[in-house]
Write a protein that binds this DNA or RNA. Structure first.
Lengths: 182, 182
DNA sequence: ACCTGAACACCGTTCAAGT
DNA sequence: ACCTGAACACCGTTCAAGT
């Protein structure tokens, strides 16, 4: 079944890393596959559908360790935030690509729900838990989007320096959440 | 002097509110001005230059009250975060427009420096102050970008509800910062 | 099932030329 | 100083037609 569909998807992700999201063109992608642009519409009804499929594919956990649901709430938030950021940084313009996607899907919704549950279990009100998770996610998106916007090659700082900056900001938020716990 | 240049800028901002940033086209903008697209290049060397000018124009404080530099650090952060968000929400796709801009300019840099200064005066290390300000700004950008991405008209929640969600997240971060103070 | 060819309705940008 | 006309090198998408 949908064999070719997967090849198109893979080629699109390869091309993303080569030319970035602005250079990712149906016509260029088609030429990489030795095909005309119109042929791609057999496999994806629109460019947006292809971009959505890319996000879904890149977001699907590839057999890695799942975060145990019984871990402390802050550890769960740390891991979710960290892997979300790594997901974005793994590909050129990854953060911008993710931000074009607007159908969270059951996977993301379930992850969100788990985090809220962990916070409620730790003693927050449901409202405060939603605020806390929303805040962490907004921070991850905002921070990573800006980090990746600064020239992809030859960025002034080494990776671990930027990791540290990200972690420090995250810990600041976690400390704020901790202060609202009973 | 640059009279026509300003008219182009104003028309561009009007058009942004009507059609959004994806519909904002040199050709459409020109037709609104009763002119051909090529004429616009007399006034702005490129579309990006026009977008930059829009950001600068919208970001320039319009005679409002400046935040007193001797206010408490948290009040300064609250006001900066709040007015940055209001700036973005004031126009269709405002957040996305701002995110296309990447030359902070002396104004923004000065504001950043003031905030860091207020935190250092309150007893943080310079590094921690930079982290704190970066975190707040990443949150504002991430939150507002997502908020505005959800359909512009007929958004499920009323404005004050969304203001509250924003404020609650901000206070969480401010609490986290407060916890690092001596 | 998958692809081509040709077209449609667009883009941003350049440049000689007009007034 | 400001604008036109025409072109260049692109876009996403549709659709009849081919194999």
């Amino acid at each position: 079944m949908g064999e070719r569909r997967t090849e198109v998807l893979r080629a699109a992700i390869e091309l993303l890393d080569e030319v970035g999201i602005d250079g990712l063109t149906m016509r260029l992608l088609a030429s990489r596959l030795g095909v005309r642009a119109s042929a791609l519409y057999r496999h994806y009804p629109s460019k947006q559908a292809l971009l959505d499929a890319m996000v879904v594919h890149l977001s699907t956990p590839r057999g890695e360790a799942r975060t145990p649901a019984d871990a402390p709430w802050d550890e769960q938030l740390r891991r979710t935030a960290g892997s979300l950021r790594q997901l974005m940084l793994a590909h050129r313009d990854g953060a911008r690509l993710m931000s074009t996607f607007h159908t969270p899907g059951p996977e993301a919704a379930a992850g969100f729900h788990d985090l809220v549950g962990a916070l409620v279990a730790a003693g927050t009100t449901p409202d405060a838990a939603v605020t806390a998770v929303d805040t962490v996610l907004a921070y991850v998106n905002g921070h990573t989007l800006e980090e990746q916007a600064r020239k992809t090659d030859a960025s002034a700082w080494p990776g671990h320096r930027r990791d540290l900056a990200f972690d420090n900001g995250l810990e600041l938020i976690l400390t704020g959440i901790r202060a609202t716990l009973p």
